[in-house]
């Protein structure tokens, strides 16, 4: 469904990704793990069109993504839940969700999607009139996931959705991710919470200083010496 082939990304002269290749098949959950600065966020930003690869190709359902603008990529069904949430803090929760369905792909079904999303996140219905910036961390994470769902993604990419959240909330977020996947949405998950992420995924990749150094099933990676050493600290 999503294929990256030999993707190089630079910040000025600094190379952040070196020939990254990976694939995500329809309806699976794939995890990308790696330490700080490994290039995980860079990779997602590149797929979303916020960064342009200098070399390589990104294809989604056979179509080139790497020359499209971010709004076209969302239109194609590739939607990102960004790190640090990136909500519109002074807009209300409802306005944030409405904007999630800004594309032509999602706009006609906005009311119906909103009903779905509110049913899945009852807390957002309660908070609908509140400014998004006034929500707690966990609520903000739910709001940003809900906002992404409003775009009716066929591939949902989540960048560190568990970052800075209490363990209970993290459990809830992972439960929601599995549930979204259960409804047929393909998921590409970027996490530092390696154990939980790999346990949730079918397959995974390990990224280290901009290179894919390991790939396999979630279970294989969890048992791999290299993963454990590099990312679980033992």
């Amino acid at each position: 469904m999503l294929e990256l082939e030999g993707v190089d990304v630079f910040y000025g002269d600094l190379q952040a990704l070196h020939g990254v290749s990976l694939t995500v098949e329809a309806s699976e959950i794939v995890t990308l793990v790696g330490g700080n600065g490994a290039g995980k966020t860079t990779m997602l930003r590149t797929v979303s069109g916020l960064l342009r690869p200098r070399r390589g190709e990104i294809r989604f359902e056979g179509r080139r993504l790497d020359r499209l603008t971010p709004d076209r990529i969302v239109e194609a069904g590739v939607v990102q839940v960004p790190e640090g949430r990136r909500l519109f803090p002074s807009l209300t929760v409802r306005e944030n969700l409405d904007l999630g369905a800004y594309t032509r792909r999602a706009r006609p079904a906005r009311a119906r999607t909103l009903e779905d999303v509110m049913a899945r996140f009852p807390i957002l219905r309660e908070r609908a009139g509140q400014r998004a910036g006034s929500l707690s961390g966990g609520e903000q994470q739910m709001c940003v996931i809900a906002r992404a769902l409003m775009a009716r993604p066929s591939l949902l990419m989540l960048d560190e959705p568990s970052l800075g959240l209490a363990p209970m909330v993290v459990q809830e977020i992972f439960r929601i991710i599995r549930e979204i996947n259960g409804r047929g949405v393909t998921v590409l998950l970027v996490e530092q919470n390696v154990r939980q992420a790999l346990a949730t995924s079918r397959r995974g990749y390990v990224l280290e200083t901009g290179r894919i150094v390991l790939s396999g099933t979630g279970q294989e990676l969890l048992e791999s010496e290299q993963t454990l050493k590099a990312y679980l600290g033992r």
């Binding site: 969302v74 239109e75 939607v79 990102q80 990136r86 519109f88 807009l91 409405d98 906002r147």
Partner: peptide
């Protein structure tokens, strides 16, 4: 919608791009 998109792009440019608002 366009007005809200404007406010969204003002507050959070990348966030706006990621919901499919043509920021430019």
């Amino acid at each position: 919608d366009l007005g809200k998109a404007l406010r969204a792009a003002a507050e959070e440019r990348d966030g706006a791009a990621l919901v499919g608002i043509p920021v430019r």
